[in-house]
C-alpha cells in the first residue's frame, strides 16, 4: 500500500522545446515542423529503434516525452494513465483522405491502426516492456481530478508500482505533451495543485 505519493519526474514537449522537471532541456529550430522537430529530438536520444519512423505523430510525441522521462529509471510496474483533447483526429483525417474519393480509394492498414488514441500507449508498452494497466481518456482539457484519482487507485490497490500520467495532445502542428511519473519517492506531493503547476 502506498499512501505517500509523489510526482517523481516530469517531461513536457511543446513549441519545439523539451523541458525536464520544469527546466528547458533542449530546444529545436523555432520554425521547424513537428515532424522535423521530432526527428531531431529522436536523434538526441541516441537509441536504435527504427519503429519510431513508422509511428503516427501522436505516438512519436508520446514516445519522445516518455523516453526522456524514463532515462535511467527503473521501469518495473509502470502503469499508463493518459488523456488528450483531439483523440486520434490527426491520423483520422489522413485515413479519411485515403477513402474520400472513389478514384483514389486506398485505405492503408499502417495508417488505420493509429486511428485510436490508446495506440500511443501501446507503443510505449512495447518500447519499455510495460505489461501494466493502461487507460486513455479524451477531454477538452486535462481532467486533473480524474487522472489524480485513477493513478492513486492504481498505486493504493497495488495494481501498479508507479504510474506515468499525462496529457498527450497533438493535432496537425499544435502539440503539447506533459508526462509525469507518480510513485512512492520524491518531494513534490501528488496533489491537484502540484499537477496543475506542471501545465503552467
Amino acid at each position: 500500500m502506498t499512501d505517500n505519493m509523489y510526482i517523481e519526474r516530469s517531461c513536457r514537449i511543446s513549441e519545439n522545446t523539451i523541458w525536464l522537471d520544469g527546466a528547458p532541456y533542449w530546444k529545436g529550430l523555432p520554425a521547424a515542423s513537428f515532424i522535423d522537430f521530432a526527428k531531431e529530438a529522436f536523434r538526441l536520444l541516441k537509441v536504435d529503434y527504427p519503429k519510431f519512423y513508422k509511428m503516427d505523430n501522436l505516438s512519436k510525441l508520446v514516445f519522445l516525452a516518455a523516453d526522456f522521462l524514463l532515462q535511467q529509471q527503473d521501469k518495473d510496474g509502470i502503469a499508463l494513465v493518459m488523456a488528450n483533447r483531439s483523440s486520434s483526429l490527426d491520423t483520422d483525417i489522413k485515413h479519411q483522405q485515403s477513402i474520400q474519393e472513389k478514384e483514389s480509394f486506398f485505405p492503408s492498414p499502417a495508417t488505420f491502426v493509429y486511428t485510436l488514441p490508446n495506440i500511443c500507449e501501446g507503443e510505449l508498452c512495447i518500447r519499455h516492456q510495460l505489461m501494466t494497466e493502461n487507460i486513455f481518456l479524451v477531454d477538452e482539457c486535462f481532467p486533473t481530478e480524474t487522472i489524480e484519482m485513477y493513478a492513486a487507485y492504481l498505486l493504493r490497490s497495488g495494481k501498479a508500482k508507479r504510474v506515468m500520467c499525462g496529457w498527450a495532445e497533438l493535432f496537425q502542428e499544435n502539440y503539447d505533451a506533459v508526462l509525469y511519473l507518480v510513485g512512492p519517492n520524491g518531494e513534490k506531493e501528488h496533489t491537484k495543485k502540484n499537477i496543475e503547476d506542471l501545465f503552467r
Partner: peptide
C-alpha cells in the same frame, strides 16, 4: 469522463467508473 481505448473501451469504462467510485 470519456474512455477511448479501442475494443476494450466499453468494459474499461465500467472498470474506470468502479475505481473512481471507490476513490
Amino acid at each position: 469522463v470519456v474512455v477511448s481505448h479501442a475494443c476494450i473501451s466499453g468494459l474499461l469504462a465500467v472498470i474506470a467508473a468502479k475505481r473512481l467510485i471507490q476513490m
